[in-house]
Deep mutational scan, measured.
Amino acid sequence: NKFNKEQQWATYEILNLPNLNEEQRKAFIDSLKDDPSQSANLLAEAKKLNDAQA
């Protein structure tokens, strides 16, 4: 299913963002699990935070 693929991709991407700390990473991944339909939005937020902390 589409959300499952998006969720897996977003999880992979978030795990590989270098500037997030473990707590932030875990929070994003927990949110992905809670609502896979928000995968794209959550990934965008994670990338923004990652860039802000660069």
Rank of each mutant, 00 (worst) to 15 (best):
R25E: 01
Q8V: 10
L20D: 00
K48D: 08
D35F: 14
K5H: 09
I14M: 06
P36K: 03
I14F: 03
D51N: 11
K47H: 08
Q53E: 04
Y12K: 11
P36E: 04
F28Q: 00
P18T: 08
D30N: 12
L32V: 10
A10I: 10
A52W: 10
S31M: 15
A27Y: 15
Q7G: 04
A40G: 14
K33P: 02
Q8N: 05
E45P: 00
N41H: 11
Q53D: 03
N4T: 08
T11M: 15
D51L: 12
A54W: 09
T11K: 10
P36F: 05
T11W: 15
R25F: 03
E13N: 06
L17V: 00
D35S: 11
N41A: 11
A46E: 01
A54I: 10
F3Y: 10
K47P: 00
K2Q: 15
A10W: 05
L42Y: 10
P18K: 07
I14W: 02
L17I: 01
R25P: 00
A10Y: 11
L43F: 06
A46Q: 01
K33E: 14
D35V: 06
E22Q: 13
Q53V: 09
L43Q: 03
I29E: 02
Y12I: 12
N21V: 06
E13F: 07
I29H: 03
D51W: 08
E6F: 09
N16E: 07
Q7T: 08
I14A: 01
A10T: 07
D35P: 01
E22V: 06
N21P: 02
Q7I: 03
N21I: 06
A52E: 13
F28P: 00
D51Y: 09
D34E: 14
S31F: 13
D51V: 09
K47D: 02
W9S: 07
A52H: 10
L42M: 12
A40S: 13
E13I: 13
D34S: 14
N4F: 11
P18Y: 05
Q7L: 15
W9V: 13
N4Q: 11
L15R: 06
A40T: 11
E6W: 08
D30K: 09
D30M: 09
D34G: 10
N21H: 12
A44T: 11
A44M: 15
N19E: 04
K26F: 09
L15S: 12
Q7E: 13
L32Y: 02
